[in-house]
Nucleic acid binder design. Structure first.
Lengths: 117, 117
DNA sequence: GCATCACATCGACGCCTGTCAATCTAAGCC
DNA sequence: GGCTTAGATTGACAGGCGTCGATGTGATGC
């Protein structure tokens, strides 16, 4: 838990000077940050996170009507969440007859997972 | 890229029956999903994600006035983002005189990182 | 004292979010 | 054909978001 704080010994600025020049920069560039933030945002809802959890472990084997009773939300709301996950490039679906089978796209989470670890 | 879809051979339901019983459940329970979604949501903005990136690599060594020029946003907006990260339990700060030093809390990202990998 | 600094908070602005009931669409059964 | 089904879409609602300029706060320096 302890954080090793190495406080930079800030010297008093000459009165009227700006405080500091930036000496550090992100390793993650803007575009990569935008991509990863998009994925993180899509995972930023408990229902969607649990959806991804189910789908990761049962790719292509679960139809939407099986997902609805798992959550305390209406069918349109579930459909809305799945749409968001699709828009973020995390899942996709195949339709067979009346049913729709969702699955997690294999590499969708890798960039974020790699950065987090 | 190819996903191995094992479509469950849905049998025709007797007319008037509900379609399916749920046969799968999330491994991640609701509370854990809420916790992880909270972290993911906080990372769901490019500025905040880059902030965490900088702070992870320079814990306790960066004051806020060094962060402002890294991003194309005003100082109040940056302060707002830091507040969100604090609320999500991802960062904390120490104040020394005029300056505030932020750092990423050591275990804050572990649960999400573990689930993602 | 008073001015200046680093940072936080406030109030406002448009926009996006999660949710629902109602409706639409396309496929299957009779 | 007409009815039923699985799922998507629409339109509405309250509430949250990211952003800014203006202001507040607490410490430093003269």
């Amino acid at each position: 838990m302890a954080v090793d704080l190495e406080f930079a010994p800030k010297t008093k600025r000459p009165n009227g000077d700006r405080c500091c020049e930036p000496v550090v920069y992100p390793d993650v560039d803007r575009e990569r940050a935008v991509r990863m933030a998009e994925v993180a945002k899509a995972l930023g809802d408990p229902v969607r996170l649990q959806l991804v959890d189910v789908l990761r472990k049962h790719a292509g084997k679960v139809c939407v009507c099986e997902l609805v009773p798992l959550f305390d939300i209406s069918q349109p709301t579930l459909s809305h969440h799945l749409k968001k996950l699709r828009a973020a490039g995390i899942v996709d679906c195949e339709r067979r007859g009346l049913w729709a089978y969702y699955y997690v796209l294999p590499d969708a989470l890798d960039e974020l997972a790699g950065w987090l670890s």
